[in-house]
Design a protein around this nucleic acid. Structure first.
Lengths: 162, 162
DNA sequence: CAGTATCCGGTGCGATACTG
DNA sequence: CAGTATCGCACCGGATACTG
């Protein structure tokens, strides 16, 4: 089956974008990866309206990307925070990939406004697509695609609905 | 400077999303990475309206992510195609990252609908964030962030405009 | 084939006000 | 602090018709 013949409705890229592919979700996750957990902090730093932020957070919690938990410091009252789950953490390459691309092609002369390092040694990180066998980084020209287990042919005429 | 104090308007994630962060651009790029180059092929496979596709393609060409070139087969008339530029190819980790995440958390039982392999050896690829020194994959907990060269403090009161 | 032009509807988003 | 409720608009995207 050729790529043009497969129905993209169950494509993983598409499904992922259905969850985080709006204008705000990935920026909220950027905040999360930088340790920002509180509603108000996110709202102010992002300059996003509260109503939209609330909706997006709900979406991300529903998708198990963030989890909402109450906590209270000594003597203070209860607060809430949004923390990355394992699923959320797994989006690290996506966010970092967007950042790396922006740093390379869109940043100001002197460089980007924020960096990510290896915690232990301090060296910068990079995002790569690599072969699972020899671990060598691969550019797209050294890759090939093929239909996977759940590939279905697109309905020949029309809109894909049965 | 703390992350919450830096002005995010020149953040690379944000700038990248300003270009490819809409509902369609990354899906158009998915088509490009699968070798789809012709307007009509993209439109049909993606089920996107022609007007929107034309606008998005223009945006991607303006951003030097795709380039439009005319070509003609023997005896046929001139056609146009959209090809990934170097900048476009550099988005490979982003697309692949989205796909990897979807494969892991959103795909049907039996697996995803499409796979990416190393062209030479046939083994699947993976996307990782890794240390540029020891090349070990890093999850977010083993990383640290810090202000970069162009980090600016957010305007204390209000909207960041001077 | 590869678009452009036009119209039109839904909704994403911001602003503001209000609440436990 | 951490939201919800409501309103209004801009813009994104779909549908249709048209063009070189």
């Amino acid at each position: 089956m050729d790529w043009l013949e497969v129905d993209t409705s169950n494509c993983s890229v598409q499904r992922t974008l259905d969850i985080v592919g709006d204008r705000w979700s990935l920026l909220i996750l950027r905040e999360a990866f930088n340790g920002v957990r509180r509603f108000d902090d996110i709202a102010q730093h992002l300059r996003i309206s509260q109503s939209v932020l609330a909706r997006r957070l709900r979406g991300l919690v529903d998708a198990s990307i963030l989890e909402r938990s109450a906590y209270r410091g000594a003597g203070t009252r209860t607060r809430y925070e949004y923390r990355l789950t394992e699923r959320g953490m797994a989006l690290f390459p996506v966010i970092t990939g967007l950042m790396q691309w922006g740093d390379r092609y869109l940043a100001d002369e002197q460089g980007g406004s924020w960096n990510v390092h290896h915690r232990e040694c301090g060296r910068p990180v990079e995002v790569v697509v690599r072969c699972t066998a020899d671990l060598e980084p691969l550019d797209p020209l050294h890759t090939r695609t093929s239909p996977g287990p759940s590939a279905r042919p697109v309905n020949a005429h029309g809109n894909g609905a049965i």
